[in-house]
Amino acid sequence: MSARIAGFSALALAALALLAFVPRLGNAYYLALAISLLQYTVLATAWGMFSGPTRYVSLATTAFFGVGAYTVAVLGEILPWPLVLLTAAALGAIVAGIVGLSTLRLSGVYFVIFTFGLTELIRQLVVWFEVNKSRVLGRYVFVNITQADIYWQLLALTAAVFLLGWLIARSRLGFALRVIGEDETVAKHCGINTTFAKVALFTISATVMTLVGAIMAPRWTYIEPSIAFNSMISFQVLIMALLGGAHRLWGPVLGAVPLTLLFELLSARFPNTFTIILGCIFLLIVYMLPRGVAGLFEKLSTRTSGKTAQRVAA
């Protein structure tokens, strides 16, 4: 087992080292695509970290992403960059903590609706504040951060998320969450502090999303609520995680990478029919792959091992 872990980590490190050289290719388009891939990989993985084991479907990705982006818009020119990122992470964690404590007692469709509303709530709060207090809507982010910097930060965050996810899955917290996902009542009877477990993981996942928003913000120069709180992000992340399979740590990547590439291909080749094709693909994913690509792999592997077993028996 430990040999396998060592092998995996060596492989992961090699991949990381290799990926770190992408900006050296010198093609801004591939760099932009790579940034996009990493962005959705981190977001979908962070989404899966909480929603996978607990089976709480969250549409709050945009809310946290936007909080991160707005923190940069407000503080980007005032504080040094590491402090800006720390502040963003802290803000994201605080918001997630408050939201988690007050809503994770909801379940099923109520939770979905609440998280969707949360994005709108935060967005309207920001608008209200900007209109009535600061009297500017639309802020400028002029910070000295290159596209390559954005890429490297995202890459580091990706590595951190996978490490974190792996550690959590092996910890008591991860086990508690899987029990909650199977049956919350049973989990309570087993003596698991379900509220603490859920809020803790919700906060971790939201902090990562907030950081992604903060890292991405310098790409746009200009930020206003409709740009930072674009609810499309929530839906895209959701569908990516579902396609990949949210019940595995590595599942969402299997959805994020092909879908980001597909979106890119579609918007380049079919700019005018993009949304129609996208809708059809979403339908197909939900109907054909209810457990995602990860689920498909598992099914295939059990089938092959099942066949071998039969053969051996015969």
Binding site: M216, R219, W220, Y222, N230, S267, F274
Partner: peptide
Amino acid sequence: YDDRSNAE
């Protein structure tokens, strides 16, 4: 292309 009214 279509920018879908989206900055990114």
